Amino acid sequence: MPTSPRLSVLDLVPVRSGQTSAGAVAASVALAQRADALGFTRYWFAEHHNMPAVASTTPPVLIASIAARTERIRVGSGGVMLPNHAPLVVAEQFAALEALAPGRIDLGIGRAPGSDPVITQLLRISGPTADVDRFPDHVADILSLLSPDGATLRLTSGREYAIQATPAASAVPTLWLLGSSDYSARLAAELGLPYVFANHFSGEGLEPALDLYRSGYTPSERHPQPETILTLNVSVADTAEEAAERALPQLRSMARLRLGRPMRPLETVDEALAAPADSEGDELIVRMRQRWVIGDADAAASAVRRLAERHAIDEVMVAPIAGSYASEPADATPGRVRSLELLAERLAA
């Protein structure tokens, strides 16, 4: 029987119509606890800003909350968008998280802004941030700052100044580089870091990026071998029909994003099914569905296995995008929970 990849979860904390941010976060807490009980490897939060359908604006806050409410699962960011933050602040936040949950913290770092141009500008004029053109330097800085020995800054006077993200680190978070292009793949290989391909967002350029990463990999002390995660949108249900219905709100939301239309909270499944035909959006949805896993348990598990085997992926990180019917509670996401349960059951078999 084929070997199944490790399974993890990527959560954007979706907000649907009629739901508050508090309800969305409560649903994600419950989902993380279920993933913990089911044996998933890690649970990551993405960073997005000013999006009506996404409540994952501050990964470190959400990570701390989930770490306190779970037992064994690793928790982290998928990812922190480094251009929005000062490297020292990121290092300090994740050093503190590591102290709160030793051996369970991941720091996934991305180079994209995670927001629209207006919010990106606002982030960069309202506080200290990282220069996107110096992204490789800032990643290296964070690695140094998180290490027990810390980093050394040479002042203009010539004096050396010691800096540490935390005074007495006993362990450090695992740092991952995220991306959907050659850039991040090359940098992860150069620095000897594990690599995450953002297949859930793009899907283009997967094979070239993985080839660049593996062929150019420089072994590091913590990571002697290359290691890969592939993210994947999934909607899994007891029937293929239900899985398709539950996928529709997220598909329609992504179509609006791609077409530059105004964003709004996720529709309920009922609202999405009742929406009028939209030739441009519907055509885009057909294309996106080809890269998503939408189906019953057996079909979905087979698709995940095939994808992992084809690209020699170590771990598949699923973004459970199954939407909710209007009759379902506003502080829970039964469709997302069921997606995880069915995948875990079939891929463990």
Rank of each mutant, 00 (worst) to 15 (best):
Thr166Pro: 01
Ala169Trp: 03
Ser170Arg: 15
Ser170Asp: 13
Ala171Val: 11
Val172Tyr: 03
Val172Lys: 05
Pro173Thr: 07
Pro173Phe: 11
Pro173Met: 04
Leu175Tyr: 08
Trp176Gln: 02
Leu177Glu: 02
Leu177Ser: 02
Leu177Pro: 04
Leu177Lys: 05
Leu178Gln: 01
Leu178Cys: 02
Asp182Asn: 09
Asp182Leu: 12
Ala185Val: 05
Arg186Cys: 05
Ala189Cys: 13
Ala189Glu: 08
Glu190Leu: 14
Leu191Ser: 05
Leu193Ser: 05
Leu193Asn: 06
Tyr195Arg: 06
Val196Ala: 09
Val196His: 01
Phe197Ala: 04
Ala198Trp: 03
Asn199Thr: 02
Asn199His: 15
Glu204Thr: 01
Glu204Phe: 00
Glu204Gly: 00
Gly205Ala: 15
Leu206Met: 07
Ala209Gly: 05
Leu210Met: 06
Leu210Gln: 07
Asp211Ser: 13
Tyr213Leu: 06
Tyr213Ala: 02
Tyr213Cys: 04
Tyr213Asp: 00
Tyr217Lys: 04
Tyr217Trp: 13
Thr218Glu: 12
Pro219Val: 13
Ser220Thr: 09
Glu221Ala: 15
Glu221Pro: 01
His223Gly: 01
His223Ala: 08
His223Leu: 03
Gln225Met: 13
Glu227Val: 12
Glu227Thr: 10
Glu227Pro: 00
Thr228Asn: 04
Thr228Asp: 03
Ile229Asp: 00
Leu230Glu: 02
Thr231Gly: 01
Thr231Gln: 04
Asn233Trp: 11
Ala237Glu: 08
Asp238Ser: 14
Asp238Gly: 15
Asp238Pro: 08
Glu241Pro: 00
Glu242Tyr: 12
Glu245Gly: 04
Glu245Ser: 13
Ala247Cys: 09
Leu248Ser: 07
Gln250Ala: 14
Gln250Met: 14
Leu251Phe: 11
Arg252Ala: 15
